[in-house]
């Protein structure tokens, strides 16, 4: 069953009618091809106008869409010889962070990401993409492994944020995130990060302090969730849409602020309507970003990455 967002209701209704019409025609043998085609065009046009002017809050909802391709979908689509690696060597394996080795277009790479899961069972398994300290420590371990063997790193980020729990705090959530950011910045290998859905605060930047940062068109990247921001600054979580607007969290905003390098266009109606097209587009853009970095030595990569982050926000004006 397809999942529709609230603002997609008119499109959902139209598509429902088309379906109904087709069923009636199948049963009664009436030719409704022309009518169906007309309604299809109408639905397409509606989809196009709706998605052409999504508000920041609507984009947040699209970024969180349950049918949107997840980290493991990108890995399955693009990484051959995929060999997931587990554990932080100290306490546990955290399935919210996915990491491992494989080949991207023939080249051996290390891959990292946050995985939200795609059905109830896998969502629980991956803790809805919210990592504990072990997850960030696993990420750091894999970054260091990649650094030792000169493997480029690709990351796919999709998380509401780091998991806020008692145990997570007791085991040093903040330190784990800080060290993961440090590992990203220090890696003497090419590093391309892609925000594929939600880029939730510290839990996202822990895997995204990269040479090239890509964002999907309808993904969001923010220091706090719109709901969290609204409940603090407006004292009312229902003001989330207003907060989303103020936070400037869309791909377009981040590109304009020069905090990300490129925006990857999504298929009409969002990545969830045509996952295959979205997977393909991301693969191409990641390759385009990675390829020029392959010629650079470790010291140059690291120095440039530092300069890039040191410059961030210094001259940004919306």
């Amino acid at each position: 069953m397809r999942h529709f967002l609230d603002f997609e209701k008119p499109i959902a209704e139209l598509e429902g009618k088309i379906e109904e019409l087709r069923r009636t025609s199948d049963a009664g043998g009436i030719d409704v091809a022309e009518e169906v085609a007309r309604m299809r065009d109408k639905a397409q046009a509606l989809l196009k106008t709706t998605y052409a002017k999504l508000s920041p809050w609507q984009k947040t909802l699209v970024a969180r869409h349950p049918d949107r391709p997840k980290c493991l979908d990108y890995i399955r689509a693009h990484i051959e010889e995929w060999t997931p690696l587990a554990g932080d060597r100290a306490f546990a394996d955290d399935a919210a962070v996915v990491g491992g080795l494989g080949r991207f277009r023939g080249r051996a790479v290390a891959v990292l990401g946050t995985e939200k899961g795609s059905d109830t069972e896998s969502r629980v398994l991956h803790n809805f993409g919210m990592a504990r300290p072990e997850g960030y420590r696993k990420a750091r371990r894999i970054i260091e492994l990649a650094s030792r063997f000169g493997l480029p790193i690709l990351s796919f980020v999709d998380t509401a944020g780091a998991f806020p729990g008692i145990e997570a705090e007791a085991r040093g959530q903040a330190e784990a995130i800080a060290r993961s950011i440090e590992a990203c910045l220090e890696a003497p290998v090419p590093f391309v990060a892609t925000i594929i859905g939600e880029g939730g605060s510290g839990g996202a930047i822990a895997l995204a302090a990269a040479d090239r940062i890509l964002m999907l068109e309808h993904s969001v990247y923010s220091v706090i969730s719109p709901e969290g921001c609204a409940s603090i600054l407006w004292r009312d979580a229902a003001q989330a849409a207003t907060a989303a607007e103020a936070l400037k969290l869309t791909a377009e905003d981040l590109r304009r602020l020069n905090l990300v390098d490129a925006v990857v266009p999504e298929p009409m109606g969002g990545a969830h309507r045509d996952p295959q097209a979205s997977l393909a587009a991301v693969g191409d853009r990641v390759w385009d970003s990675l390829e020029p970095l392959l010629a650079l030595d470790g010291a140059t990569l690291r120095a440039r990455r530092r300069e890039k982050f040191l410059e961030m926000g210094r001259n940004s004006v919306v």
């Binding site: 950011i181 605060s201 510290g202 990247y221 706090i224 600054l233 400037k248 905003d253 982050f309 961030m312």
Partner: peptide, 22 residues
Amino acid sequence: GARMQEGAISLMQMPRTVIATR
């Protein structure tokens, strides 16, 4: 923590300050 009113720019102070420690 982060200054919400500076959005993702405040988030980017995390890697920036980590670079300072380095």
